[in-house]
């Protein structure tokens, strides 16, 4: 099996896996970064959202062979102590129910705020395409607006 050298959360990491292995499973099964979740495997739900060079991508369909030296950031690397304004806003607004999709939601929101620090409701509608089966959308929207005010 080929060996890949990756930049994840500012660190250099290596994994020996088949070239078609999705980044998601490399993160979870080989690098023990379990915060990124599996939901559909076809880039629909966004539970697997991570950043690649600052953009939100769905890691379940990105083969490891295509990652190259692009910089990957996962929920574990979004902030040092869980204090990114979105993470704080998520807690303050008690957004989560089951919590399974929320790491992906936060990563999607973080990518949105990094290119648009003051998103309108329409911007949020367009950018936040992740599925939340518990229906926390109203609180997610509120948390994004409140984090936006603090950035």
């Amino acid at each position: 099996m080929p060996k890949y050298t990756l930049s994840v959360n500012g660190q250099t990491m290596t994994a020996e896996v088949d070239e078609d292995t999705p980044l998601l499973w490399v993160l979870r099964d080989h690098l023990n970064l379990l915060g990124t979740k599996f939901g559909c495997g076809v880039a629909q739900c966004g539970a697997c959202t991570v950043h690649m060079n600052g953009n939100a991508i769905r890691s379940c369909v990105l083969p490891i062979s295509a990652v190259s030296d692009n910089e990957i950031v996962t929920i574990e690397g979004l902030s040092k102590t869980g204090d990114h304004p979105l993470q704080i806003a998520w807690e303050e607004n008690d957004v989560s129910q089951c919590g399974y999709c929320q790491a992906g939601q936060i990563m999607a929101a973080a990518a949105l705020l990094s290119r648009n620090p003051t998103p309108s409701d329409e911007d949020i509608d367009r950018s936040m395409t992740n599925i939340c089966r518990c229906g926390t959308h109203v609180r997610i929207r509120k948390a994004i607006h409140s984090a936006s005010e603090k950035i």
Binding site: L34, D94, S96
Partner: peptide, 23 residues
């Protein structure tokens, strides 16, 4: 009263573990 989920900070930092995370 209003009390936040006891696992809120674990969830937002990716530390909350689910069945899929069993190792």
């Amino acid at each position: 009263t209003r009390v936040n989920d006891v696992d809120a900070s674990k969830i937002t930092s990716g530390q909350a573990l689910f069945g899929i995370d069993t190792r």
